[in-house]
Design a protein around this nucleic acid. Structure first.
Length: 270
DNA sequence: ATGGTAGCCCTGCTA
């Protein structure tokens, strides 16, 4: 089974590309971030034609998260909504969408962008991450495999950015953000991709401007964190850097995780 | 100090 995450930067502008990628890679479950669409605007037909069921929660042109699955999708739930009083109309987009797909609890996560070190959005981001940590604590020890996957808007280590000098006074690398990320790991989750994509210089996001991609100047800010039950089934993972290339690419690359069949399943040799 | 690009509710704001 293949499970993946991708910040697509607008599902409407990239539906065909995402569909072609799903077909080509054989991904069974995809967590999507930044759909930038209301529920009524989501291109359901494109994915239904490929055999995927869709759960989506969107609100405005910002953010919005989805889960596509061709192995079933049950118990859909949303949580961790955006700061309710901001914006006009008020910003209320959910930033975590959860669903159970083939026995795995999948959480499509979009961590709020802190924008700047002194910006009110940064304080909100840190409070939001503390709430997510509390939820993660409860999920970590569950016998059900849990995957917290998406765009974390945090680069946890210095080697996860192309230049610390460039980012030192900016969002994504500050000690409080890194501590908040670490607290979720310490709650009982593990980065299941890193062992299969070791750094430095391994990134998941490259800014559209200033030729960041061809200059290999990116950031590693997209992660798949698994609880123990999930992590023990991971047999491989890869950041699909090829998908960042060419006209019409998202500014994030997709990440694919390969899972072994669950213990005791029929496909085990007898 | 600015701009570079892509997306949206598009001539301004967010990422």
């Amino acid at each position: 089974m293949r499970i993946a995450t991708w910040n697509v930067n607008s599902i409407r502008s990239r539906a065909e590309r995402v569909g072609a990628w799903l077909e080509r890679t054989g991904v069974d479950v995809l967590a999507i971030q930044e759909t930038k669409a209301r529920d009524d605007q989501f291109p359901h037909l494109t994915f239904a034609a490929l055999g995927y069921d869709v759960a989506h929660v969107g609100y405005s042109q910002w953010n919005g998260v989805a889960i596509l699955s061709r192995v079933g999708i049950d118990d859909v739930a949303t949580g961790f909504d955006g700061m309710p009083s901001w914006g006009d109309p008020p910003s209320a987009e959910a930033r975590v969408l959860s669903a159970t797909c083939a026995g795995i609890r999948v959480h499509s996560v979009y961590v709020p962008n802190g924008r700047g070190l002194d910006d009110p959005h940064m304080a909100y981001k840190l409070q939001w991450l503390a709430r997510l940590r509390d939820a993660a604590q409860a999920w970590s020890a569950a016998p059900l495999p849990h995957a917290l996957m998406g765009d974390w808007n945090i680069a946890p280590e210095d080697e996860d950015v192309w230049s610390m000098e460039y980012y030192i006074d900016k969002s994504h690398v500050s000690p409080p953000e890194r501590a908040a990320f670490r607290a979720i790991v310490d709650a009982g989750f593990v980065d299941v991709v890193r062992p299969h994509a070791p750094g430095p210089g391994v990134y998941t996001y490259w800014d559209y401007t200033q030729l960041r991609f061809p200059k290999k100047q990116g950031m590693r800010i997209d992660f798949v964190l698994g609880n123990h039950a999930f992590a023990e089934r991971v047999v491989g993972a890869a950041i699909d850097r090829e998908e960042r290339k060419g006209k019409g690419a998202s500014d994030h690359a997709p990440i694919v995780v390969e899972l072994a069949d669950p213990l005791g399943s029929r496909s085990s040799p007898t």
